[in-house]
Amino acid sequence: MERFEARVDKSAGPDGCWLWTGGTFKTGYGRFYDKGKHHVAHRWLLGELRGEHLNWPEERGCHKCDNPPCCNPAHLYIGDAKANQADAMDRSGYDWTRTHCPAGHEYTPDNIYTHPTAGKRCRQCSRDKGAAARRAKGAKPGGFKTHCLRGHELVEDNLYVHPKTGNRQCRTCKNLRHSKWAKAQRAKAREARAA
C-alpha cells in the first residue's frame, strides 16, 4: 500500500480527485505492478480495501467522477458492467429522448447506433462526415456509377447486386468472365483426357 500511495497525488484534498502519477494504460487508467502482475490501479485499490481482489468481469471498479486516473476511495465503488455504463450515461447529461440528430436526420433503427457513453449517433451524419473527409483528401464525390469500366450501362437488366455485400456489378462483364473461365475449364478437361 505504501508503494501505491507514493504514486497518488492527494493535493486536491479529501473531496477532490486523487490522480495517479505512475504509468497508465492507453485508456488513461493507472497501471500498478504488484506480485508479478500489472493491475488497473483503482481496481487494485478497491480489492485491497475490501480484502479480496475484484472478480472480473462480474465486478468492476467504477468512478463516480468519470476521471480514469482518479484513485480517491470516496470517488470509487464496486459495480457490474451494466450499472457502470448506466451511471456514465446518466452523468453525461445526454437527452436520450431525442428523435432527430442535430442535422435533422430521424433516428430510425436503420439510421442509428448507440455509443456506450456518448449517446445516439446518426449513421447518415457519420457517412456524410466520412465523404467530406475523403473529398478533402482529393477523392471524387461518391454515388453510384452509371457505367462499368468497359462502358456498359448499369441499368436494371444489366445490373447485378451481390446479396451479401451489396456490391454492384455489370451483368455483361460478369457473364464474359464466367464464359472465359468455363472455356479455360473445358480446355483443361480436354488436355487431361488427351494425357
Rank of each mutant, 00 (worst) to 15 (best):
W44R: 03
A182E: 10
C71M: 00
E59G: 05
H105F: 02
G30K: 01
A6Y: 06
V40T: 12
V40I: 14
D87Q: 04
D66S: 00
I78A: 00
W44I: 01
G143D: 11
A83H: 10
N175I: 09
T99L: 06
T146I: 08
P109M: 08
F144A: 15
D110R: 12
G151Q: 01
D128L: 10
G138M: 07
L154C: 05
G28H: 00
E2H: 14
G23S: 14
A86Y: 07
K145S: 11
P57I: 06
F32L: 01
R121T: 01
R134A: 14
K64V: 07
D87R: 01
L176Y: 10
L149V: 13
G51A: 06
C65Q: 03
K64L: 14
D95H: 03
H42R: 03
E52A: 08
K35S: 13
K137R: 15
E106P: 09
F4R: 09
R91L: 07
T97W: 07
R134K: 15
W56K: 08
W20K: 04
V161Q: 11
T27A: 02
R60G: 11
A74W: 12
W20V: 02
K129C: 03
G104S: 02
W181K: 12
I78M: 02
K145G: 13
A86N: 15
R150L: 15
R98M: 10
H105D: 02
D157M: 09
Y77H: 03
T21N: 10
R171T: 08
D157P: 12
W44L: 08
I78P: 05
E106L: 03
R3F: 10
V8Q: 03
N167G: 10
H53Y: 14
H162K: 00
W44T: 04
G142S: 09
N167L: 12
E58L: 15
F144S: 09
K140I: 06
W56V: 13
P163T: 06
G22N: 04
K26L: 06
L154S: 06
P116Y: 00
K180V: 10
Q169F: 12
Q169E: 13
G79C: 11
A189F: 10
K145D: 10
T21S: 08
D90Y: 08
A131T: 09
F25N: 05
N84R: 03
R171L: 14
E2A: 11
A139K: 04
C70Y: 02
I112P: 01
R168W: 04
N55H: 13
V40F: 05
D87G: 02
A192E: 15
